[in-house]
């Protein structure tokens, strides 16, 4: 661990050597750009209906075909990227901040604080993600904010666990003892000395769980618990297409492909990061 964090130059190199992780980064960047510049990318409005062009198969005019209301599926998918990506990124960021902090506090202070924090995390973890999410959305009502809240809540205990373990290891290091000998406050030790040392490990998980969050969001939307129609979301589009799956399979296939691309890109990034950060794998590579 100290070797990897000490040589950040080597880290970038290892990451670079992994071509697939660059594919992931480029793919994810493209998706982000599409989401940001959706109004310029989409040829039609996402909720513009046209009775004349209902359930048209993919063509040059409508790349992904049209749905039962004659809405352009490509434009809807482009706008849907906004929802999916922002839910993924925002909820993982929130979950990482809150859960990571709780985990670091639990690991650093130990004893009763550790027990209280980690047992509450265990309680949250004991419910399946989807069930927790459904309960929260059912209680708060379906909306973009509530979907983010629901996913964040399910992510917090996972990040707490991921942050606690390396904190336990780092806090025994000589330099943390040196910090105490220099009379640094707990806040300073945690923020400046522990967090930078465990951040890399947390970021790997963050990239993988962003993919997960996107899938959960799609799952919610599919179940009708997500953002209310007519706002387009990938999960919602699959749900709408589901009713016409035999007459117009493109209605579900294309949003499904979008989810696949987003999840794939994030997983490739996560794999690349993990390979670059895992000292054991690095050793094997150096020998070979």
């Amino acid at each position: 661990m100290s070797a990897t964090s000490a040589s950040s130059g080597g880290l970038v190199q290892t990451f670079n050597r992994n071509k697939l992780s660059w594919v992931g980064i480029v793919l994810f960047m493209v998706l982000c750009l599409i989401a940001i510049f959706a109004p310029f990318v989409a040829p039609y409005g996402p909720i513009d209906q046209s009775v004349m062009t209902r359930m048209r198969p993919p063509s040059m005019e409508h790349l992904f075909g049209t749905d039962a209301f004659g809405r352009d599926q490509f434009s809807r998918a482009v706008y849907g990227a906004r929802i999916s990506l922002s839910v993924g990124v925002v909820s993982v960021f929130l979950g990482m901040s809150v859960g990571g902090l709780l985990g670091v506090l639990a690991g650093y202070f130990g004893k009763r604080i550790d027990t209280v924090i980690m047992r509450s995390m265990d309680v949250l973890l004991s419910f399946p993600t989807l069930i927790t999410g459904i309960v929260i959305v059912a209680l708060l009502g379906p909306s973009l904010t509530n979907v983010i809240v629901a996913i964040t809540v399910t992510l917090i205990p996972k990040f707490a666990r991921i942050a606690r373990a390396p904190t336990l290891a780092v806090k025994e290091r000589a330099y943390i003892e040196a910090c105490r000998a220099m009379g640094f406050s707990h806040a300073r030790i945690i923020l400046f000395h522990i967090v930078p040392n465990i951040l890399t490990e947390i970021l790997v998980m963050a990239s993988l769980w962003t993919a997960n969050a996107i899938m959960i969001e799609a799952g919610f939307a599919f179940l009708g618990l997500g953002v209310r129609p007519p706002t387009p979301t990938w999960g919602g589009m699959i749900r709408e297409g589901f009713e016409h799956i035999f007459q117009a399979p493109w209605m579900s296939i294309f949003p499904g492909l979008c989810i696949l691309l987003a999840v794939l890109s994030l997983n490739l990034i996560g794999d690349g990061l993990r390979d670059a950060l895992d000292p054991r794998l690095k050793q094997v590579r150096d020998m070979g």
Binding site: S5, Y175, N197
Partner: peptide, 8 residues
């Protein structure tokens, strides 16, 4: 060797 934080 170990009393300095490697990432700072």
């Amino acid at each position: 060797m170990t009393a300095l934080n490697p990432v700072l």
